[in-house]
Nucleic acid binder design. Structure first.
Lengths: 221, 221
DNA sequence: AACCAATTCAAACAATTGTTTAAATTTAAA
DNA sequence: TTTAAATTTAAACAATTGTTTGAATTGGTT
């Protein structure tokens, strides 16, 4: 059956990609882990690059509509949500990924991080294209919570937030082990997410600094 | 002269490493850019892995002592610094790197980001080993600014902060281009750093959430 | 000038990469 | 059962990787 081969490739690939990155994961490592033939990757996906996209698509197709609903719900319940509420709307969609696949949440966010740092912006554009609707809605909801911030300020801070999130998840395994060894904490992905929300929300809400530099290049002659 | 070959390799390598990552940068690309023979990398550095370490070491050796002085100065001036002051003490050491090499600050922090996300924690341990002293002093200074946070809370938040920083710098080029296109902002690395400081400081300072989960595993029987 | 060590160099190394091919096999419909 | 399409397979492909080799060249010292 083709469909099992295809999903077995995806299942194996996402784990290896998340752990070692895209460049450091060979198709042979993937097909060996998946117990399928090497050529089946190119047969079913065309190329390694398209396999990477499909790995992420599988998650985004689950997450995006649920997040969209969360945001719609929130803005309908309250006209000015708090920043914590806005970021809290990420939690349920993210944890939902754990239902469909073991460690789904962690794997997804790790993949997201890889996609941003590796493959110079190629994956970023892909996400922007196919999931731009949810992204725009999220930015808009952030704006509701923080009317004192202009668009560019929100742009920057949301990328800061992505960085916090993505990096933490990428090192979540190591961080959990350290926390266990040093502070006797058994933290799950869910715990980490709940620690992250107030941090990110506080950072995103804080008052902007006046920027003396960073002006449009205008010659005042 | 050997010393020029060596530095020319380092100069070429750091730029390529920062831009494409360690795995995606071949020794041939480095030696071509540096106008030196391919074999000279193994002759002078032994291996690619050791070249990566020396690229980072060149920066850390400049940054670490200056940061240490900044922290000592700060704690001597004020007994309880603000969180902004603590993170501000990073600015001067980071910008100092721009003096020794063109785009030094950006390259260094990008390398740091690569080092954390790629090469699964190998580089993290290297930094922890050779620059643990400065790290400990930094954590201690954070504790002065945030006495309401216990050690484990600071541990988590500092890793959040590292993530914010490192990820932003790793994608700084792309972010700058977007900011230029969408908001007509010509932002430098220095601008980004000054945007980051209040964000990170606010996040690090915020009140901790009571964690219903994440308890030590104790059977209360 | 003669020597030795340090360095550079072109060439080849073995290993690994993503991809392609063409035959073998499986699957499902006629 | 026959037939044709879909899938799997082993093998080879060309390209690229990090590393090593041994001879050529350089630089400084006696």
């Amino acid at each position: 059956m083709s469909i099992t081969t295809k999903t077995e490739i995806l299942d194996a690939a996402e784990v290896l990609f998340a752990e070692h990155g895209f460049a450091d994961t060979s198709l042979r490592a993937i097909t060996t882990k998946a117990n399928v033939n090497l050529a089946s990757v190119n047969y079913h996906f065309g190329s390694k690059k398209m396999l990477i996209q499909e790995v992420l698509k599988r998650y985004l197709d689950i997450l995006a509509p649920v997040l969209e609903n969360q945001l719609i719900d929130l803005t309908q319940r309250v006209k000015q949500p708090t920043m914590d509420q806005v970021f809290d709307s990420l939690v349920a969609p993210l944890l939902l990924l754990n239902k469909s696949r073991k460690n789904g949440t962690a794997i997804f966010v790790q993949l997201l991080g890889r996609g941003y740092s590796e493959s110079q912006g190629h994956l970023r554009k892909y996400i922007q294209n196919y999931y731009g609707s949810v992204l725009k809605r999220f930015v808009h909801t952030v704006h509701l919570a923080a009317p004192h911030l202009d668009d560019s300020e929100i742009f920057w801070r949301l990328h800061f937030a992505i960085g916090t999130f993505v990096f933490t998840m990428a090192s979540s395994k190591a961080l959990s082990e350290i926390a266990d060894a040093d502070y006797q904490q058994q933290v799950s992905i869910e715990d980490i997410i709940h620690r992250l929300i107030p941090y990110i929300a506080a950072g995103t809400m804080c008052n902007p600094l006046q920027m003396p530099t960073a002006q449009p290049k205008l010659d005042i002659a």
